[in-house]
């Protein structure tokens, strides 16, 4: 009985993905993942694991199971067709001199 409880407890806490905004105005970036019992604990764990060296001002967490990823085996058909579509980049426009940072 106690053995069983211990076993389930260890696998019970789900995995969460953590996104940190390093300062106001920037976007949240994936920082890593961690275990937590619920969203509140996940935010707090993220605070302690990922922001204790002043890395962030805002935290997002999402349970890892809610992230749907593309299949690496399909990379050829997914991404390679873009390789020779150079016309999709806006490199054929002439920019005026005054526009410095594009």
């Amino acid at each position: 009985m106690t053995q069983e409880i211990k076993k389930t407890n260890k696998t019970e806490w789900p995995l969460w993905e953590v996104f940190i905004r390093s300062k106001a105005g920037l976007d949240h970036k994936h920082a890593g993942s961690l275990h937590a019992a619920d969203a509140q604990m996940a935010v707090e764990n993220a605070r302690d694991v990922y922001t204790r060296r002043m890395e962030g001002v805002s935290i997002w967490v999402v349970e890892s199971r809610h992230i749907h990823a593309s299949d690496p085996d399909q990379s050829e058909s997914m991404y390679e067709p873009a390789n020779d579509k150079i016309y999709r980049h806006p490199t054929f426009y002439n920019l005026p001199e005054e526009v410095k940072y594009m």
């Binding site: 806490w13 275990h35 707090e44 764990n45 302690d48 694991v49 204790r52």
Partner: peptide
């Protein structure tokens, strides 16, 4: 009991 709480407590 778990890595994350280990860090939380030592913080």
């Amino acid at each position: 009991p778990i890595l994350e709480q280990d860090i939380a407590l030592t913080n």
